[in-house]
Structures are given as structure tokens and as C-alpha cells.
Design a protein around this nucleic acid. Structure first.
Length: 200
DNA sequence: TTGTTAGTGGAAATTTGAGG
DNA sequence: CCTCAAATTTCCACTAACAA
């Protein structure tokens, strides 16, 4: 069974010590469990499946599939880096792999020569040659690529019906308007109480 | 050319922990 | 408890380099 985002939701900022206890007022991100802004868990999972189906870095195909409307390749690339746990994606180019499998491995790598940024391993030293990249892609293909049958059978969500999207957005709008009204009523009520007090 | 990707810099957000 | 600011982490825009 491949790992999911839930499986890797472990405290990272404070891996040990007395503060390694969840307090009631701790923010969720304290535990590095939150997703990046603009990415819901569902979207992240769709991207993961799309990458397995179309291959790492094949952004044009993913955009074509319309399963992630509104996402640019830059946004998808960043999210891929977060899933992989490393910044450079070259050694997986075009491979049908589960990025979370790599992410799981990368999360365990330690060492003084390992530099991280945003929890992602970044390259240090000289950049690998073209041949070295090719070699690594071949190696990663052997190690991690899922079977063609498997990735052919991955089903992505259908492009959304614009009519349904519109209805859902209108529903959101109505809900937010109600919320706004309720907050305004609360403010008005508090002001009235304050005025009553001021009279005395 | 045109489209993509790797990598950088710095702003913004979050966390920690000391002191009230 | 709470507040605050230093320390740390995260995010995003941007660019140079690369690939097709």
C-alpha cells in the first residue's frame, strides 16, 4: 500500500523534548500537517494520480486532462517538490511513479551533507551531468515505476461541468453572505450593549 | 522561437520561549 | 495564562539555463 499524506503527518518542527505534546491552542501547522495554501488534500491527491498516469513533469498532459482546473505548471511543480521531498525533479522526468514513495524515503534521509529548504532536500555541490541524470532516470525507472497496466487504469476526475461549478459557487456565495450578516448582527448587538452601558 | 525546469532571494508567516 | 520579538520555516516570484 502506497503512503498517503496522512501517513507522513508527523511532528517535524519539534521531533523530541517537552514541547513534543499537542496543546489545545497549537496551530495545526505547528505539526507540519497542513497543506500549502491553494492546495486541498483532494487536489493534491489528484495531482499525485495524474503524475502517476501521465509521468512526472508532463504538465501539458495534466493541464489537458482538465482534472486540476486553474492550476499552472509552476504551482504543480512546487506541489510535486513537496510530495517528493526534494527540489530537483530531473531524475524522475517522465517516469510513472508515486511521488509520495520518494517523499517517504527522502523524509528519512539524514546527514550533515544533506541540505533542506522547506523540508525539501536541495542539491549541493555541482549539478549532475546530462548522462548522470539519464542514468538516474533509468535507475529510478527500475526501482520505482509502476506497471503500464496500473497507470493506464488510473482514473482522474472528469472536467467539471461549468453549470455545476456555477451552482456550487452560487451556493458558496449565499453561505458567505449569511455568515457576513450574522457577524454584522453580532457587532450591532455588541455596540447597542456598549451604548446602554455608556448611558449610566 | 517557445515552453519548461532548476534554483535563488527575500517577503511573509509561523514557532519558540522568555518575561510579565 | 498572555504578549512579544527573535529565530526559523515556508512560500512565491523571478530568472537563467535548458530542451524541443
Amino acid at each position: 500500500m502506497a503512503p498517503t499524506l496522512e501517513d507522513v503527518a508527523k511532528p517535524q518542527s519539534m521531533p523530541s523534548g517537552p514541547r513534543n505534546v499537542l496543546r489545545s491552542n497549537d496551530s495545526a501547522s505547528l505539526w507540519n500537517c497542513t497543506l500549502s495554501p491553494g492546495w486541498s488534500r483532494e487536489e493534491s491527491d489528484i495531482l499525485r494520480k495524474a503524475l502517476m498516469k501521465f509521468g512526472i513533469g508532463n504538465w501539458a498532459k495534466i493541464i489537458d486532462s482538465q482534472s486540476l482546473p486553474g492550476k499552472t505548471n509552476a504551482q504543480m511543480n512546487l506541489q510535486l517538490q513537496r510530495m517528493l521531498g526534494q527540489q530537483s525533479t530531473a531524475e524522475f522526468a517522465g517516469l510513472h511513479i508515486d511521488p509520495l514513495v520518494i517523499g517517504e524515503k527522502n523524509s528519512k534521509i539524514q546527514g550533515s551533507n544533506i541540505k533542506r529548504k522547506n523540508n525539501c532536500i536541495v542539491n549541493t555541490g555541482g549539478k549532475p551531468t546530462r548522462d548522470e541524470i539519464k542514468r538516474r532516470i533509468q535507475q529510478n525507472k527500475q526501482l520505482y515505476e509502476i506497471s503500464e497496466e496500473e497507470w493506464n487504469n488510473i482514473i482522474l476526475p472528469k472536467p467539471e461541468d461549468p453549470q455545476l461549478v456555477l451552482e456550487s459557487k452560487n451556493e458558496d456565495l449565499r453561505r458567505l453572505q449569511q455568515e457576513l450578516e450574522s457577524v454584522r448582527a453580532q457587532i450591532a448587538s455588541l455596540r447597542r450593549k456598549q451604548q446602554e452601558k455608556d448611558c449610566f
